[in-house]
């Protein structure tokens, strides 16, 4: 009888362990998917920027600094840790906003179809990053709760799951950008 009870308890523990392990794997996968989404968008932004700089260069003669800064930030959003890349992207978004504000003074550029299309795509990628970052942080939150708290904590430490870092949201990046057309 006692043996049966012990076997029963062990069985329950094993089933619980497998279930909790699968939960951890699933949550980590969710975070990974969200990050993959961000990664794709950051790469797409990096691809768009050279065309933007080329289009704008001819019109905006006095904004060399702004364009240089944008080109520098471009390389930062495609290499480094997720945190570094997203941070660089926030700065890039702000710089682009300044550029778009400057463009208001150049009616020829404002009417340029190529520029408008690039602007639209850049805003699109920025919003996608913002929304995907929310999904990423949500996944990390659920995952970290499992890693930190008993009893799932036991399974996490046994299987080697470690806490993961959030993507910081900067004040200016909390709301999606509002760009008037």
């Amino acid at each position: 009888m006692v043996v049966l009870i012990i076997i029963g308890i062990i069985l329950v523990l094993v089933v619980y362990g497998i279930w909790e392990y699968n939960n951890l794997v699933r949550l980590k996968e969710e975070a990974k998917n969200a990050w993959a989404q961000i990664d794709v968008q950051l790469k797409r932004r990096a691809d768009l920027i050279p065309s933007l700089v080329n289009t704008v260069k001819g019109y905006v003669k006095h904004e060399k600094n702004l364009l240089t800064k944008i080109t520098e930030l471009r390389s930062k959003i495609i290499s480094g840790t997720p945190q570094e890349r997203v941070k660089a992207n926030n700065i890039l978004s702000d710089t682009l906003k300044s550029l778009f504000a400057v463009v208001e003074n150049y009616p020829d550029l404002k009417a340029n179809q190529n520029f408008l299309a690039l602007q639209e795509e850049l805003v699109n990628t920025e919003n996608k990053v913002a929304y995907a970052r929310q999904a990423y942080n949500d996944a990390i939150y659920s995952y970290n709760v499992k890693v930190k708290y008993f009893p799932s904590r036991l399974i996490a430490s046994l299987a080697g799951f470690k806490e993961m870092e959030y993507l910081e949201v900067e004040e200016s990046a909390k709301a999606p950008p509002k760009i008037e057309f």
Partner: peptide, 19 residues
């Protein structure tokens, strides 16, 4: 068309937001 492009982009963005 840029406005249609924008509509499609917004659909994709909000799909991500709504998961």
């Amino acid at each position: 068309n840029i406005k249609i492009r924008q509509f499609l982009n917004l659909l994709e963005e909000l799909k991500i937001a709504a998961n």
